[in-house]
Design a protein around this nucleic acid. Sequence first.
DNA 1: CTTAAGCGGAATGGCGAATTCCGGATAAGG
DNA 2: CCTTATCCGGAATTCGCCATTCCGCTTAAG
Lengths: 206, 206
Amino acid sequence: MLTAAEQVFAARGLDASLEEVAAAAGVGVGTVYRRFPSKAALLEAVFERGIDLGVELLTECRELPTGWAALTEYLRRSLLEQSGDRGLHEFLYLAEAAGLHFDRLRTRVEPLLTAIVEQAKSEGALRPDFRATDIPPLILMLSRLSHTDRVLGPPLAHRYLELLLKGLAPSPDPVPITPPIDDDTLETWFTALRRPPRTTPPHRTP
Amino acid sequence: MLTAAEQVFAARGLDASLEEVAAAAGVGVGTVYRRFPSKAALLEAVFERGIDLGVELLTECRELPTGWAALTEYLRRSLLEQSGDRGLHEFLYLAEAAGLHFDRLRTRVEPLLTAIVEQAKSEGALRPDFRATDIPPLILMLSRLSHTDRVLGPPLAHRYLELLLKGLAPSPDPVPITPPIDDDTLETWFTALRRPPRTTPPHRTP
DNA sequence: CTTAAGCGGAATGGCGAATTCCGGATAAGG
DNA sequence: CCTTATCCGGAATTCGCCATTCCGCTTAAG
């Protein structure tokens, strides 16, 4: 059932109704509610697992011989797997809901990304001004295409990923490009995201 | 008022309520309805203008001395201006609504894009396997970042555009990348988009 | 002062979706 | 085979959220 939920949210986005989830799981809505007290709880479970899968993928990729290989492999597979799903992106997109999980994302995912990026740089395969925090936005934007169209999107995303990768090599003439987000700004942003927990009493509890 | 509508739809997406639009324009909803008979009509007007602006921008860019300059300038400015807005993207994203306008987009915008791309290729500045139809998806994905965050997004989009542009140069060793959409597929897709006009009688008309 | 046009924004009506709840199905126990 | 405690499916219930409508007030011309 959790698997069905993952697929539905990935395909239809967070607005997918529980009825759709139930149908996909081959059960009735009532049954979904017996397993998860609310839609929020179900989403929580789905994203928890999403993060786990991401960490797992990252760990796997780190075993590749070079940092560059790890980086490219991670990006490629991210676009194919759960990271490319619409639900996760809307999740990151919706500030209110996201606040909760950003800590976990940062704690568990960021160190792995940094390690890979640093390794790739030390190999001279990656331009020095690239940063680990560039990766989530890259995945976010590339997977946008998958959401526009399930059929055309994924190949296109890969096409543009390949173009992008060509741009990631250190240039002989290090023309500076627009700088990435600096850490302070990022911190401020995360903090802002955590602010509004939004009162959500979708139904009375008499 | 149309300007206010553009801004609101750009910022909040197509789901923005007319109340928001009215507030932004500093008027009441009633006044909006006196100018446009329905929300659909307002959207129609907004996108009509969006296309006009796009054509105008493209025409301006064509006057630059090289095709490459025209291409990069167009991409850069698209990300700043209306093409980078959320409303237009949701518009393209929502198949039903889009059908109407695709014809106009293709008729008016595509030829200009093709001309620029061909010129840039003939200058040897652009890899030969790049195509005019790659441009809309590129803008689409880059502007995704602006939608995630109004403050961080635009600079990031430009950062990744610059990386991407580095990847667009013809490579000395022409390693083939994932091919773009072929014309037939694109045609099929457009046709599919035109299919469901969706019956939308949001209110009774007694 | 009268009156008509233009407005703002409260009131209406529907829709879609989360949550609740009940009647029937299933299966263990006697 | 009958009884009864569980477990389900999915219809029914409520909400919240808009698009759209409508009416009383303001404004200013006549």
